[in-house]
């Protein structure tokens, strides 16, 4: 078990290391460098030289990579070209905000998705299933900017119940984001719930058709006892991995929603720094997102293994 954990951890570390190399070489291969990208037409003479000296761009690429990678490991992500601020600090704030959004969305979305997924599966093809399954398809297919805009129009412009835009600054505390964060959370949760709902529904339907559920029925086990003791523990195992992927998506992939609501999250920072040509920040965010993906998936695999006796013995034996 321990050796398996160590192996998975080191594999995860290797993955992140490879990603960091790819990011770094990708940036290296761009024509010009961080300074020419940032300074644009002014990239000449003294200004360029100073910039390069400030960012330490005159040393060989391998040296710079090793420097960057080793300081990134202890949390120092360098300084941005733009404001000459510590990237760790800049990104840290945004990360907190993204985590807040993700946390709220998960808190609402996951229980709701599992509940509705189970309900729609148990009442398969009944009206309740048709209503929620259709709603889920709508939630998945309507573009986020459309649903965001409609929600702002209804709840903010017409009813005036909720603020339609986030005006709180990026470094504010979590409490200060309420109630501004409510609408973005609803939009994010809608998409997420729909995905998880459909997955849970399929999984429950599969398990309901299994031999062991039929056996439990023929053993005289009452219906709800079958659902809670024989169906759900087996059907919800795959949900762990889907939720993990959703978390990673919530942190980096909800740019559109962040832009519509002016929410200061990580995704928007990435887009902003790309348009500002602030390459050190882009590198840092890419690296952080890769780490998030790897660690979230690793956690999900470990959780699945703890919850699934089959996987557990498989790894115990090794």
């Amino acid at each position: 078990m321990l050796s398996m954990l160590l192996r998975r951890l080191s594999l995860g570390f290797i993955t992140v290391a490879l990603v960091s190399i790819i990011i770094f070489t990708g940036v290296e291969f761009l024509p010009g460098d961080a300074c020419t990208a940032f300074l644009e037409r002014e990239a000449q003479g003294k200004l360029l030289e100073n910039c390069r000296r400030d960012l330490d761009l005159n040393r060989p690429a391998i040296d710079r990579y090793l420097d960057w990678a080793s300081s990134a490991m202890v949390g120092d992500l360098g300084v941005s070209v733009n404001g000459q601020q510590s990237i760790a600090e800049l990104v840290g704030n945004r990360m907190n905000n993204s985590l807040l959004l993700a946390f709220c969305a998960l808190l609402v979305g996951v229980p709701l998705a599992i509940f509705l997924g189970v309900i729609t599966a148990l009442w398969r093809d009944k009206p309740i299933d048709l209503v929620f399954s259709t709603a889920a398809i709508f939630a998945m297919t309507i573009p986020e900017f459309v649903s965001s805009t409609v929600l702002i129009l209804v709840f903010s412009a017409w009813l005036g119940w909720l603020p339609g835009i986030v005006l709180t600054s990026a470094n504010a505390s979590a409490a200060e984001f309420f109630p501004e964060i409510i609408l973005p959370v609803i939009v994010v949760a809608m998409v997420m719930t729909a995905h998880i709902l459909r997955m849970v529904r399929t999984s429950v339907i599969d398990v309901l058709a299994s031999d062991y559920v039929r056996m439990a029925t023929l053993k005289g086990v009452p219906y709800w006892q079958i659902v809670f003791q024989h169906v759900l523990p087996n059907a919800l195992l795959p949900a762990i991995n889907v939720v993990a992927l959703t978390i990673a998506w919530l942190l980096g992939g909800v740019v559109v929603i962040e832009v519509v609501f002016n929410y200061p999250g990580l995704g928007r920072m990435m887009i902003d720094s790309i348009s500002d040509r602030d390459l050190p920040v882009v590198q840092a965010i890419a690296l952080i997102l890769a780490t998030v993906y790897v660690s979230v998936n690793l956690t999900a695999d470990l959780l699945t293994m703890i919850a699934n006796p089959r996987l557990r013995t498989l790894h115990m034996r090794k």
Binding site: S210, R214, K219, G220, P233, N234, P309
Partner: peptide, 22 residues
């Protein structure tokens, strides 16, 4: 439910799949 598994019990084909894995 009273009769099934009580007075009248089933031994299934392929017990490996008829036992709940978790």
């Amino acid at each position: 439910e009273q009769i099934r598994g009580g007075q009248l019990a089933l031994i299934p084909q392929n017990a490996g799949q008829a036992l709940t894995p978790t």
